[in-house]
Structures are given as structure tokens and as C-alpha cells.
């Protein structure tokens, strides 16, 4: 059996590919790109939510939000670790992000304008992420799939806390209701865009599906998400900002309107409302933290030198 046949047999048998296995170079680079983008998304995703930590309406909500943002940092770490098993270094990937050569999910290029946005992000953005990530727990690459299992467990908290924020707002004053509706109006379409282009326009989906990196197509995942979310909006008493949204008895799914693909590509190309801010902020935080990293390294070096001289003296 050639290495290639062996690889294909493992994938066909629903077994996992592990870091030391032979794998096609394109499989490796596809995974590095996707896992790195996923990691960057987790890390950049801390910014829109971090924006509201100091203005959370209660101490309880503040504690929850800090825990959630801390989880996102952890998710970034799991994912960078998974990417490193493929032979890249985390600082290389980070450098590419800072240079604008690596992308992250476009959803984080939208601003968080009100407290209700924190609810909408948990409910919709994390809801869309879960739909995608549940699929990825079945990915053919072992370290990525295992990371997803951990992440999915934690995402469930994220989604529920967001939905609960909106329940409270929707039970509140007319102003609070309006705030919730406004958040839904602004986040609904970008959330649907998270699933990417239509299957017919998605160039490398087919190969990823063959390799079982990806198990379900963009459009199928988007439909799953819509079907799951519409009844949740109904419960809140909110109106989806899509006049074409309608239950289709025959299909057993909701029909919905067309995404504004011009907006989609504008944001992917780097011209969304927050693209520049996000990267500037990230790069600045990295540079500002240089002294902490240098101090930690100096401390470690001094301690190990001291330990070595003790051993030498003995």
C-alpha cells in the first residue's frame, strides 16, 4: 500500500489522521489555513464582546461575560495547538494575522453598539458557530476534531447566556424590546453569511468534503441554523428582518431571502466596519505585551541557570 492509499483508507474507514501520519501536502495546507483562521477568529472574537465588559448592566452579567471572553482565549489556544501539530508555529500564524495575510471570520468585523448585541452574539453568532463546530467534531484530522469536542461543550454556555440576555430584554420595557429587535436586525444577516458562499460558488468545498475535513455543505448548515433559530426568535417575540422568511411545508424547512453578497465580499476583502480596528488592536496588544514575555523568559533563564549552578556545586 502506498502512503497515499494508506491515508485514503484511514479517511474512508472514518478513522482519524494523526500528526505523524503521512498526508497529502494539500490536506496539510488546507488544514493549517482553516485551523489558523478558526484560531484567529476565536482570538479576534474577544474584542467585540470585551467592548462591553466594563459596561455590563450588572456584576453578575459582567462575571459571565468575562468568563465567556476567557473561554474564547482558551479556544484560540486549543486551535493554535492543533495547528502546530501540522508543523507550523503559533507565532508565525500570529504574525501572518498581524500582517493582514491571514483572515478570520468576517462576523467579528461588525461593531457591538448596544448591550443587546452581546445577547445577539451569544445566541446567533455562537449558535452559527456551534452548527459548524458540531460538524467539525467529525473532522478527519484527530487533533482538530478533539479540540472541537472541548470547544462545543463550552459554546453551549455561550449560546444560552446570550439567549437569556435577550429573554430579559424582551420581557423588559419597550426601549429594551426595541434594543433587542435592533440587535437582531443588525446581526441576523451577518450570522447567515458566517456559513460562507453558496455551495455552487464554494470552490474548495468539494475537496474538503472528500477529505472529510468538512462533512456538511455551507447551504445545508445555513438551513439547519435557520430552522433552529426561527422558533427561538418567535419565542422572544422578535421579528426576523427578512420578509421572504416563510415555513415551507413541502420542504420541511424555512425558505429565506437572499444574502447581500456584495456586503459579504466587501467585508471579506477587508472593508467591513471594523476590519482595520480589529487588527490594529490585536497587533498593539501583542506589542504592548512584549515586556511581559521578555520578563517571563528572563525569569525562566535565571532560574534554570541558578538550578544548574547548584547542581554544578554539588
Amino acid at each position: 500500500m502506498t502512503p497515499e492509499e494508506h491515508f485514503e483508507a484511514i479517511v474512508a474507514a472514518e478513522d482519524k489522521i494523526e500528526p505523524t501520519d503521512w498526508m497529502p501536502e494539500a490536506y496539510r495546507s488546507t488544514l493549517i489555513r482553516q485551523i489558523a483562521q478558526h484560531a484567529h477568529s476565536e482570538v479576534i472574537g474577544m474584542q467585540p464582546e470585551g467592548n462591553w465588559i466594563s459596561r455590563a448592566p450588572t456584576l453578575h452579567r459582567k462575571a459571565i461575560l468575562m468568563a465567556k471572553v476567557q473561554d474564547e482565549a482558551g479556544h484560540g489556544l486549543y486551535l493554535y495547538s492543533a495547528a502546530e501539530t501540522l508543523g507550523v508555529r503559533r507565532d508565525e500564524l500570529q504574525e501572518l494575522l498581524h500582517q493582514g495575510k491571514h483572515k478570520y471570520s468576517s462576523i467579528f468585523n461588525y461593531p457591538t453598539l448596544s448591550w443587546a448585541d452581546i445577547g445577539a452574539i451569544g445566541w446567533l453568532v455562537d449558535g452559527a458557530a456551534i452548527t459548524n463546530q458540531v460538524m467539525l467534531t467529525r473532522c478527519s484530522y484527530g487533533p482538530y476534531a478533539r479540540g472541537m469536542v472541548r470547544i462545543c461543550k463550552e459554546e453551549s454556555f455561550h449560546q444560552r447566556q446570550g439567549y437569556e440576555i435577550l429573554i430579559r430584554l424582551c420581557q423588559g420595557s419597550p426601549e429594551q424590546n426595541a434594543m433587542a429587535q435592533d440587535a437582531l436586525d443588525r446581526w441576523w444577516w451577518p450570522s447567515l453569511m458566517m456559513f460562507g458562499p453558496h455551495d455552487t460558488d464554494s470552490t474548495h468545498t468539494e475537496q474538503s468534503m472528500q477529505w472529510k475535513i468538512k462533512r456538511v455543505s455551507n447551504d445545508e448548515l445555513r438551513q439547519q441554523f435557520v430552522d433552529m433559530t426561527v422558533p427561538q426568535a418567535d419565542y422572544l417575540g422578535l421579528t426576523m428582518p427578512d420578509p421572504a422568511l416563510k415555513w415551507n411545508e413541502e420542504r420541511g424547512h424555512y425558505d429565506f431571502g437572499e444574502i447581500d453578497w456584495d456586503e459579504f465580499w466587501t467585508v471579506v476583502k477587508g472593508n467591513g466596519p471594523m476590519n482595520r480596528d480589529r487588527i490594529e488592536h490585536k497587533a498593539r496588544a501583542w506589542d504592548d505585551g512584549a515586556w511581559v514575555r521578555a520578563a517571563a523568559a528572563a525569569h525562566a533563564a535565571r532560574k534554570s541557570a541558578a538550578a544548574a549552578s547548584l547542581t554544578g556545586a554539588a
Partner: peptide, 24 residues
């Protein structure tokens, strides 16, 4: 799909070489 940002025209899916130093 979320974590698979589509390629722009002319963009390569290959990994770019970085100028990153050895870092810490």
C-alpha cells in the same frame, strides 16, 4: 462556512512564508 473564509480572486490556498522571527 465560518472558519473557512473564501479565497479572493488570485489568492492562493497555500501557506504563506512568514517573516516571523523565532519569537520568544
Amino acid at each position: 462556512m465560518t472558519y473557512d473564509v473564501p479565497l479572493l480572486p488570485g489568492e492562493s490556498p497555500e501557506i504563506e512564508e512568514t517573516t516571523a522571527t523565532a519569537g520568544e
